[in-house]
Design a protein around this nucleic acid. Structure first.
Lengths: 349, 349
DNA sequence: GTGAAAGCGCTAACAG
DNA sequence: CTGTTAGCGCTTTCAC
């Protein structure tokens, strides 16, 4: 393996001190009063031989790593992986690298991950927090790390965050079902008191309340077991035959729910209306296509990174917590349009 | 921020030299003949105060980083993100961290990424190679880095790889269409000479050849533009009305293709049969459900990491290139069963 | 304006 | 068996 050139090699080649080079490299030429000539000469040479500083030596010296640690529920979930991708793109441009990991919504795994990231001395933490890590985040904050939380918040913690308007979105989606003639709207959600889930439920309940409709919430265990979940949802729908619409609180709950509906041979949207929180690439291609609450992925990623970069560049000063609340879009498709003429897609030509 | 404890603090606290501690930490107690007592004392103390060595100092010193760089086409693609997740899990257990990035199948971006990874001194490279980076990989190999390639290979490069049996899988899928009475089977694939795409096409053509069927291959440009792609596919199907089945060569081509079929109001599987290379979580829930070639995600991830760990642990010795070819499973669903009784899912109860 | 030199925390050769 | 010590490559203070 060819030996990496170091700043000393360059100093030798150019016949100047490595200090000068270091200054130029770190954009302090001006500040340190290095001559234009010298600067250009150095920059040109570095460009020519393609020198890159050793990031480990830099990190060791400065204690900074230009690295952001990101922990989400499941990095293979389309929602999170799309956000990760967008963030990475933006962060790159600012010279930051992102380290990803999946918490599986497991408190212990999240704690371990935070430890691991501390070890790797990441400069900042971007977290979709699982329950029970309030304390760990508090410690991070006390130790003056940059932390941004997204997708959900934790009660009693003052940390910058970016969320979507879960309450309002769910309210609107439920309203939409009501307006389309559905009378008994159920919600299938996670058995969890995480903020985003609670808000979604509250929005749903509020809409029902306003119109004096009954509600029925079914809760399933997180990623417990697909087969069991499907069976449970089937039983739920079977033993509550008055239900004529369902609001699925997440993408993967909808997976199970749609399979349950399919197994029961219930017709969408005639027998049962369907709305899902969080869109999927393929929902538009379902027959009938599935109405979904679309989260602004790009925007979320941008805002999170923006907050992070602000935190990272500012001296860890006392500042008010920034909360960013983004709107979603209810993408109305066929699964909630009982009153409309249904497009006949499966008719033979 | 609380000051990190260093190995020196521990040496002081325990009243011994840091060398001894370093040896114990690196599992060289035995080798260096350190007393059982001493070892246990040190380990216990370290455990108690939760000391973790500074990885940057370690890396700077040893030149190793316990980090693997992974570059795929698009980390938000379900196929790649699922593989990434599995790999991460396995790698973690062995003390390795993975750095991910998306190449967007762009040669230049991939080259930049390799440079960036070299900078970060990753120990090994896991790559789903875009076209045109043969040379860069060769250089990596010459410099004795651990490299494993997956999903596709590059012509004329001797590098460990794990692939699925693209040829055989496509052959089988096409055969399946033929056996189900389809007469004019088209293939929609990428305009690319990447190995996996070529193999898929060859398998398709072989099956047609054997049965003396005509074939028709349409090629679209990589992730060019969804709208245009859809339109192109529509036009293709419209101007070749004899086509009664389509084999989509990737997941995201199928996205566009299914939308085209939908726009044309062609009935699946009556008017047109559909097979997709690479499954999607939701294909089973389509109406009709979509037949797909399922790649063994977990297995791919496992084999790649296994190869990588072998390379990493062995002295970079001359060894034969290891090629691992994994089988896929053709998951037959409704979209190819024209002769079967179609389940009537949309019947009202 | 520029250079010498002191570490950042760790590993490992070498000495004892 | 254990301790001393020389760097790994870089940033930054301080002196010239």
């Amino acid at each position: 393996m060819k030996k990496k050139t170091t700043i000393i090699d360059i100093a030798r080649d150019l016949g100047i001190s490595k200090t000068t080079i270091s200054f130029v490299l770190n954009g302090k030429a001006r500040e340190k009063g290095i001559s234009q000539n010298q600067e250009i000469k150095i920059l040109t040479y570095i460009e020519k031989i393609g020198y890159k500083p050793n990031v480990f030596a830099q990190s060791l010296r400065t204690g900074k790593t230009k690295t952001i640690g990101m922990m989400v529920e499941d990095i293979s979930d389309p929602f999170f992986s799309s956000i990760a991708r967008s963030m990475e793109e933006i962060a790159y441009k600012r010279g930051y690298k992102i380290l990803y990991s999946s918490t599986e919504n497991d408190t212990q795994k999240a704690k371990d991950l935070i430890q691991l990231y501390r070890n790797r001395q990441v400069d900042g933490y971007i977290i979709a927090p699982p329950p029970g890590i309030e304390h760990d985040i508090k410690v991070l904050l006390e130790d003056k790390f940059a932390v941004v939380v997204f997708d959900r918040t934790l009660p009693g913690i003052e940390v910058d965050n970016v969320l979507v308007n879960n309450y309002q979105s769910s309210y609107q989606a439920t309203k939409h079902l009501i307006e389309n003639g559905y009378l008994n709207i159920a919600m299938v959600t996670l058995d969890s008191d995480q903020s985003q889930m609670m808000d979604r439920q509250l929005g749903y309940e509020k809409a029902l309340d306003e119109c004096d409709r009954p509600g029925r919430v079914m809760k399933i265990i997180y990623r417990d077991n697909d087969v069991d979940n499907i069976k449970e949802i089937q039983e739920f729908l079977n033993s509550n035959t008055e239900i004529d619409a369902v609001f699925f609180a997440t993408n993967y709950i909808a997976d199970n729910g749609l399979e349950a509906i399919r197994n029961l041979k219930l017709g969408i949207p005639q027998n049962i209306g369907v709305v899902v929180f969080d869109d999927d690439r393929l929902f538009r291609l379902f027959s009938p296509s599935i109405t979904a609450i679309v989260q602004p992925i790009k925007e979320i990623a941008e805002q999170v990174i923006k907050l992070m970069l602000i935190l990272l560049s500012n001296p860890a000063s006392k500042k008010p917590v920034r909360s960013i609340l983004l709107p979603t879009v209810l993408k109305v498709r066929e699964s909630t349009l009982r009153n409309q003429e249904k497009e006949t897609r499966h008719t033979l030509k």
